[in-house]
C-alpha cells in the first residue's frame, strides 16, 4: 500500500472519530506530564545528592557538662581527650580518608545556632555552654562516614557522631516519595490512555468495517489493513507526548528556572535542557503504548 493512500485512510479515520482522538491526545498528555514530573524529580534528587553529599560533613560531638550520663559518664571532655581525638584525625590511619577537619568550640557553635534559628524562640533559651564542642570532618569520599564512626564512637569524651547525610536522606526520602506518587498517578493515567486507545481504535475499525471487509476480500495484507489504525493511535499519542513536553519545558522555564532557582539560590535545579532531554522518553513511552494497544485492538477486531 502506498504511503499517501495509507495517510489518507488514516485521516479519514481521524475525521470520523475526532472527539475520541482528542481524548486520546489529552489523556496521553496528562499521563506523560506525570511521567515527566517523575523523571525530573528523580533527576532533581540525583542532582541534589551529588551537590549536598559532597558538602556533607561528619560531626564528632564532644561531651559537655549537659551531656547524658550514659554517653559521657565523666562529664565534659578534657583537653587531653580533645588532643587525643585530634591526633587520631591527623594520624596516619585516617589521613588518606580525611580531606579537612576543624574544631568548633561552644561559642562558634552558639553563633551558628543563633544564625540558624534566628526566627525561632529556641535561640532565646539556649546558652553557649549547653551546646557541644565538635570536630567537623570533611571526608574525601562522603560515603565512608562509617570509618569515623568506628574510630571514634565509644572513645572517652565523645558524645555522639553524626553524619549530616542522614539529615539529607530525610529530605531525599521526601522528594522520592513525591516522585513515587507522581509515578503512581502516571501509571494509572497511562493505563487509562492505553485502554482508551484500544477502545477508540476498535470503534474506528467498527465504523469502517465495510472498508475492512472489502480490503480483506481483495487481498490486502493484514499489515496494510492494520497500519492506518495503528498510525491513528500513534499520531494521537505522539501529539499528547509533544504537548506534555511543551508543558514540562514551560514549567521548567517559568517556574523552576525563573522562580524557584532565584528564591533558593544555593540549590541547583534541573534546567530546560534537562526537561528537553526527557522528551525522547515521553515520545517513546507514548508511541510504544499506542502501537501495542492499537495493534492488539485491531488484531482482535480482525479476528472476530
Amino acid at each position: 500500500m502506498k504511503l499517501g493512500f495509507i495517510l489518507s485512510e488514516m485521516w479519514a479515520g481521524i475525521r470520523s472519530n475526532i472527539s475520541m482522538i482528542v481524548s486520546i491526545i489529552l489523556v496521553s498528555f496528562v499521563s506523560l506530564t506525570f511521567v515527566a514530573v517523575t523523571l525530573l524529580l528523580q533527576l532533581q534528587v540525583g542532582e541534589m545528592k551529588t551537590y549536598w553529599y559532597d558538602r556533607a560533613q561528619v560531626a564528632i560531638y564532644l561531651c559537655s557538662d549537659y551531656s547524658p550520663e550514659e554517653a559521657c559518664p565523666a562529664g565534659g571532655a578534657t583537653d587531653a581527650q580533645k588532643a587525643a581525638i585530634e591526633e587520631q584525625l591527623a594520624g596516619e590511619t585516617l589521613t588518606p580518608y580525611v580531606d579537612t577537619y576543624y574544631f568548633e568550640n561552644q561559642d562558634a557553635a552558639y553563633e551558628k545556632f543563633v544564625e540558624q534559628f534566628a526566627d525561632s524562640q529556641a535561640a532565646q533559651y539556649i546558652t553557649a555552654d549547653q551546646l557541644n564542642e565538635a570536630f567537623w570532618v570533611n571526608l574525601k569520599d562522603p560515603t565512608q562516614s562509617e570509618l569515623i564512626l568506628e574510630s571514634f564512637s565509644g572513645l572517652d569524651g565523645v558524645e555522639e557522631i553524626k553524619d549530616q547525610r542522614s539529615y539529607l536522606d530525610e529530605i531525599f526520602n521526601f522528594l522520592n516519595a513525591g516522585s513515587l506518587l507522581a509515578a503512581g498517578v502516571a501509571s494509572v493515567m497511562l493505563l487509562s490512555a492505553t485502554l482508551l486507545i484500544a477502545t477508540t481504535i476498535r470503534l474506528s475499525a467498527h465504523s469502517r468495517r465495510r472498508e475492512i471487509s472489502i480490503m480483506r476480500l481483495v487481498g490486502a495484507s493484514r499489515f496494510s489493513i492494520q497500519l492506518p489504525f495503528v498510525l491513528e493511535g500513534l499520531l494521537a499519542a505522539v501529539l499528547g507526548a509533544l504537548l506534555a513536553t511543551s508543558v514540562t519545558v514551560a514549567i521548567t522555564h517559568y517556574f523552576v528556572t525563573g522562580y524557584l532557582a532565584k528564591q533558593l539560590a544555593f540549590t541547583s535545579f534541573f534546567t530546560v535542557a534537562d526537561s528537553l532531554m526527557i522528551t525522547p522518553y515521553l515520545l517513546g513511552i507514548g508511541a510504544t503504548l499506542a502501537i501495542i494497544s492499537s495493534s492488539v485492538s485491531i488484531h482482535r477486531y480482525l479476528k472476530a
Binding site: M1, K2, I214, M215, V218, G219, A220, S221, S224, I225
Partner: peptide
Amino acid sequence: AFALQVIG
C-alpha cells in the same frame, strides 16, 4: 481503484 490501492 480502492481494490488496487489497498494491495499496493
